[in-house]
Write a protein that binds this DNA or RNA. Structure first.
Lengths: 153, 153
DNA sequence: CCCAAATAGGACTAAACTAGTCCTAAATAG
DNA sequence: CTATTTAGGACTAGTTTAGTCCTATTTGGG
């Protein structure tokens, strides 16, 4: 029940690989090599993460990405929001959807309580916590062969 | 982020429609008429819910479904489990998957903390709570036209 | 005893979403 | 000026989800 997408999963791996490199930039290719995630996918992820301001980018030769904030200040909620959008547990509790029965709806309430609880759980875990190890991707295989994830600590 | 499936959403609507009918059985067709959810879908849902023992079924003429327990004793977690399976937030924290790096993995920890928090949020909300109103489905449309959900209370 | 009303179970189709790739443009260091 | 690297978006393939339908089984009632 209730899965985050693989992309988000990879996203944490990518971000985790930047945790101990606050002062240097890493190119998408380097990150791909380090994490074992396919280069085009890393690239896509970094673009999304840059748009969400979780990483900053430097263009041109010797360019690359770095975290914009300390790993302690990036929460799992930030990552999920960046990569999956702020969609909510039910259509009906998503901010931009409105159901025709809204006026006399009491249910939303219960779902929204659940929703808030989930959010706060996600907000309580920082990238630092997630980066303690980096097994998030593992069960994954690329082209049939299991990938190798390098630990960065 | 983190959506439950529409089927689960409809599932709560279906279950909610049984809340105040503890002593009679309702046929799938009746429930479909009451909730506005398409009959085959209702049927499918009820089979799954019956398999999970959230409803009991009576076959044959005048048969139908009823809740097996009081609405207070059915949690949102039960419903999600019944309709989506006990899948977890990451592949890696799902009970039956094992990643190659498990032995030296500390990350799972953080995700699993999130996972537990989500579960407990789901366990804290009962069908009774969810049934206070029944707008869960609404934003949905069938064949392009918005459906009408009858309130049962 | 037979028929109609129901559920059980599973096969199947279509639509939506996700993952992943690739191409072109713009920026920048040397 | 050229090689490197990000930005942005188009596109494809694969998977998953939603939804439908068919056949078998059970059971109440005429």
């Amino acid at each position: 029940m209730l899965r985050i997408s693989k992309l988000t999963d990879y996203g944490t791996v990518v971000l985790a690989s930047l945790v101990d490199r606050k002062d240097e930039v890493s190119s998408a290719a380097e990150i791909a090599a380090r994490t074992g995630v396919a280069p085009p996918t890393v690239s896509k992820l970094l673009k999304l993460l840059a748009k969400a301001k979780l990483v900053s980018s430097t263009r041109g030769a010797n360019g690359g990405y770095r975290l914009t904030r300390a790993p302690e200040d990036i929460s799992a909620a930030d990552i999920v929001d960046a990569l999956e959008g702020p969609v909510s547990i039910t259509e009906c509790s998503a901010s931009d959807s409105h159901c025709a029965y809204e006026e006399n709806c009491d249910t939303g309430d219960a779902w929204q309580r659940i929703n808030r609880a989930i959010r706060s759980a996600l907000e309580d875990v920082s990238l630092r916590d997630l980066a303690k190890g980096t097994c998030t991707a593992p069960k994954m295989h690329f082209g049939g062969t299991p990938i190798t994830i390098e630990r960065t600590n």
